[in-house]
Design a protein around this nucleic acid. Structure first.
Lengths: 114, 114
DNA sequence: TATATTTGCTTGCAATATTTAGCAAACCGA
DNA sequence: TCGGTTTGCTAAATATTGCAAGCAAATATA
């Protein structure tokens, strides 16, 4: 994924969190988070990814792979799909683009009732 | 491990390789390898570790852990019960209603084009 | 309306990963 | 002995991560 900034933004918004909320929980500056989401960061450190993975509830491996780090080779298929495994199980593989749209739609769902 | 420089040097010497041989195979400068082995580098990048792990025949995970990166949790249990779609793994718990909407939206996405 | 707070963002800045260039000592064949 | 090569190393330069500070627009509150 070349521009994973949108992906991180979608994750945060799906949780309805502000940059400063994530800043507090992850101990990562909102400034840096902003740059990350706007595509100005190439490869955030594994430590940063680990913190974000816990807050957003996604797997650390998935984020590592997303930003282009080598990933431990074990069950290549299952690993790369670890986050989408259940949906894939029912409706087939989900592309990165589709995944992003789904996350954005989830955010929409959660906000429309307010 | 605070001084893993010695560890990297031991790995290389165990294989009877020179800095420049490793440089060629890993595409990492001999200068940097020298600094790495003398403890002047704090955290070599995952990509560099991956290359070295292949040349030295040790596991990528081991090197990642050695230099202090967060390690991937493996004992995580798969939360998706049979038939139950679980994006929860990614974005936290989602309700049955949300799940249904996401699936419908996915279908919409896939039929939308052309 | 006016003031205060929130929110996303940009701008320098420090730290550090990694490279290029090159040095000095050891090694090696003629 | 001697010119060439190998080997490990250092210094300077470049690139990127991540932060502190602060700004502008939106939003909340009086």
């Amino acid at each position: 994924m070349q521009n994973y900034g949108d992906y991180f933004r979608a994750l945060r918004e799906a949780k309805n969190m502000t940059l400063r909320e994530v800043e507090k929980q992850a101990d990562v500056s909102n400034a840096y988070l902003s740059q990350l989401e706007s595509g100005k960061v190439k490869q955030p450190s594994p430590l940063t990814l680990h913190k974000l993975s816990e807050i957003y509830g996604v797997s650390y491996d998935l984020l590592m792979e997303k930003v282009g780090y080598p990933v431990t080779e074990r069950k290549e298929k299952v690993k790369s799909e670890s986050g989408k495994i259940s949906i894939a199980y029912r409706v087939g593989d989900i592309s990165d683009d589709e995944e992003l749209e789904l996350l954005n739609y989830l955010k929409f769902i959660r906000n429309r009732k307010k």
